[in-house]
Design a protein around this nucleic acid. Structure first.
Lengths: 193, 193
DNA sequence: TCACTTTTTGACCGATCGGTCCTAAACAGG
DNA sequence: CCTGTTTAGGACCGATCGGTCAAAAAGTGA
């Protein structure tokens, strides 16, 4: 029963995700947000609260969109070793896409904000848990289907795969080629079987 | 034949390294530097140039001190698999030391400054090359001594170890326990042999 | 002691930061 | 058409940013 908002919240939030992803939290000013989101400062504050709150919502959005999409096939019921390999192949491709060397928003946030923003860190860790859980399930599946040896430590290996995921982000941002990273993934899988 | 500086450059530079390491480049203001380094702004500019130049010198110092110290045993002539394992064990301990969750300055810099400071990125990559070279040598040594299988791809595995190094930094900063990370390292080595 | 050179101190600069306030515009319901 | 409520625009706020300037202080060599 009053004037409605002239924009779609989720669309705007997606653009905020892009900005924070490319420039980081400190590197993204309110002026940047106004310019790229196409709305005034007061609208930003009315809709999302202050900068830090907006950032947390952007993190949430990243997790529920970007994250879940890449997790989808890993969470399939019959996901095994192939699904894990597909996950890393797709990750490397995405991380090294031309003009898109922005690593992973979660890894970026952990390093930039980990010491200062416990809420942000909490969301990053929740996202990490989701990934690690998916890895565990796929690893267990691969183990029962005989793709992996009986003695394999599923818990530790899942953590190892998370380490690998974050490490690939850093190396990709530093300019490593897709070939290098694919080879590193191959080396990892050579040890798994 | 004039007034000498009242401080030791390297000592001051070490403190700058600490600050940048803990707070990042953007997160460290000139006021912070003045306060913790104990010298005035003009002295900073006279001695090290502007903030970005100081940062590059701090990166260099980090590499030549922190970096070289951890690389030392990896660069020993007879370094093999044990040396690599010792490197990761020491890394995990250092990364999870209480009150010191600051990850690795190189990884931090790659993610925070990689897109904006090509000079900084260059130095990070040069440090990475040093690490990767040491890994290659130790891996080759381990291969000839029979610790590792003939078919092992030294090049790709060395990259894999760099990926792990960076990944451990991120996970450590996110709050992962030393135990978790040690287990992940174990899982990695289980695959290598 | 006396120049000469450098360091140091601290005030100061414009720009930009995140955030707020106030007013005008725009829509919904009656 | 009004009335009520919310949104939108933009001026404005104090604080802080990196960087500069000028003057004072402190050494050096003669």
């Amino acid at each position: 029963m009053a004037r409605p908002k002239s924009f779609d919240q989720d669309t705007v939030l997606d653009q905020a995700v892009q900005l924070f992803w490319e420039r980081g939290y400190e590197g993204t000013s309110l002026a940047d947000l106004e310019a790229h989101l196409g709305l005034g400062r007061q609208s930003l504050y009315n809709t999302f609260g202050d900068k830090q709150t907006l950032f947390l919502k952007a993190l949430e959005r990243y997790r529920s969109h970007v994250g879940e999409r890449t997790l989808a096939e890993l969470n399939a019921l019959d996901a095994g070793l192939d699904a894990i390999r597909a996950f890393f192949t797709a990750s490397v491709e995405s991380l090294t896409a031309p003009g898109q060397r922005r690593a992973c928003l979660m890894a970026n946030t952990i390093l930039e904000r980990g010491s200062q923003d416990p809420d942000a860190l909490l969301r990053c860790n929740s996202a990490r848990n989701g990934l690690e859980r998916a890895f565990r399930r796929a690893l267990a599946q691969a183990k029962t289907s005989g793709e992996l040896p009986e003695g394999l430590d599923v818990e530790a290996t899942a953590t190892l795969l998370v380490v690998q995921t974050y490490g690939l982000s850093v190396l990709a941002k530093s300019g490593a080629s897709a070939g290098e990273l694919h080879a590193a993934v191959e080396a990892l899988f050579a040890g798994l079987r």
